[in-house]
Simulated assay, not measured.
Amino acid sequence: MLKRIIQIVILNRLHIIASAPAVMWCWSEFLKIHFQSIDYLIITLAVACICQWNRLTDVEEDALNCPEELKDAQSKSRAIKIFCFAGGTIAILLALFTEPAWPLAGLVAFGAAVGYFYNTPFIPSKPHLRLKNMYIIKNVSSGAGWSLGLLAFPMLRAHTQPDGLFLMAFIYMFAMVMTYEIMWDIRDVEGDGRAGIRTLPVVLGINSARVYAVTLQIVCLAIIISGLTHARLTSLWSLYLLPSMMLMTLIIFFPLLIRYNRNLSHVLVMGLNVFACLGGFLAMRFA
C-alpha cells in the first residue's frame, strides 16, 4: 500500500508540487514576511500546471530517461491538458484580480511565459526551439522562475520592500535551484543528449557540470557564513548550511549515485519538503 502511494506521488510529481508551498512558508518565517494565503494557492497551482505539462512535452528524452513515467502521462494526456489550461488560467486570473498592479502583472506575464515556453517551442514547426533546449538558459530560466515565483511574487503582494536579507535569500534559492537542475541533468544526460537538449553535462561533460554545481553551493555556503559572521543572520540561519553540505558531498563523492540512481532525486525533493517544514516551524517558534 505504502509503495503504491509513493509510486503515485512520484509519477504525478506531487512531491515537487508540494515543495512550492513548503518552501514558500519556510522563507516567509525566516524573512518574517507574511505571505498572503491565496498566494500559496496561486503558486502551488502554477507549479502543478508546469509539472504536469512537462510530463507531456518531454517525449523524446523521457522515452529513454523514464519510460514508465512517460507512459503514465500519455495515458492521462487529455486530463492533464484540461487541468493545465484550466489551472493555469485560474492561477493567472487569481493573481491579476486579487492584486491589480502593473509590476505584478508584468511578473505574472513573465512567469507564465517562462513556465509555458520552458517546455513548449516558440514556433510549433521547430520543436527544439524551447527554453529547455537552450544551453545555460535552461538552468537560468528554471532558477529565475522558482525564485521569482516563491519569493519575489509573494513579497511584492505582501507590500514589502526587498532588503539585504531578501536579496541573500533570493540568491541562495536561485543557486540552489540551479544546482538541483544540474544534478537532474547529470541523471538524464543520456536521454537529453539524444533529444538534442543542450544541458551542461551534455555540452561540457559530467565532470565539468559537477564543478559548476559545487561552485553554486560554495556561493550558498558563502552567503550564509558571511551573514552569520557579520551578524546579519541569526544563528537559526545556520540550518541553511546543511542542504549545501549534503549536496556538495553527493556531487563530489557520489557522482555515480547521482548519475544512475533516479530514486535519489525523488528522495532529495522529499527531504527538501521535510527540511522546509522543519525550518519554517523552528523559525516560527524561535526566530
Rank of each mutant, 00 (worst) to 15 (best):
M155I: 13
M155A: 12
R157S: 03
R157L: 00
R157D: 02
A158N: 12
A158L: 10
A158K: 10
T160D: 05
P162I: 08
P162Q: 09
P162C: 10
F166S: 03
L167E: 06
M168H: 11
A169C: 09
A169L: 08
A169F: 04
I171Q: 02
I171R: 02
I171T: 05
I171A: 13
I171H: 01
I171M: 10
Y172A: 04
Y172H: 07
M173C: 03
M173T: 06
F174T: 03
A175T: 04
M176T: 02
M176H: 11
V177I: 14
V177M: 06
V177P: 00
M178R: 01
M178H: 01
T179C: 14
T179W: 01
T179M: 04
Y180P: 00
E181C: 10
I182P: 00
I182M: 04
M183G: 01
M183H: 02
W184T: 07
D185K: 03
D185A: 13
I186C: 09
D188P: 04
D188I: 03
E190D: 14
E190P: 00
E190Y: 12
G193T: 08
G193D: 06
R194A: 13
A195P: 04
G196K: 14
I197Y: 01
I197Q: 01
T199N: 07
T199L: 07
L200R: 03
L200V: 11
P201E: 05
V202T: 06
L204F: 13
L204K: 14
G205V: 08
I206R: 15
I206K: 15
N207H: 15
S208E: 15
A209D: 07
A209L: 10
R210F: 05
R210P: 01
R210S: 06
V211M: 12
Y212L: 14
A213H: 05
A213F: 05
A213W: 00
A213P: 04
V214K: 01
L216Q: 04
L216F: 11
L216A: 09
Q217H: 15
Q217G: 10
I218Q: 09
V219M: 09
L221F: 07
I223E: 00
I223S: 04
I224V: 15
I225P: 00
G227K: 03
G227I: 02
L228W: 06
T229Q: 09
H230R: 15
A231T: 13
R232E: 11
L233N: 01
T234S: 14
S235E: 06
L236G: 05
W237A: 02
W237F: 13
W237K: 04
S238G: 15
S238R: 12
S238T: 11
L239N: 08
Y240W: 15
Y240C: 08
L241V: 13
L241A: 13
L242P: 01
S244M: 08
M245Q: 08
M246N: 09
M246Q: 13
M248S: 10
T249R: 10
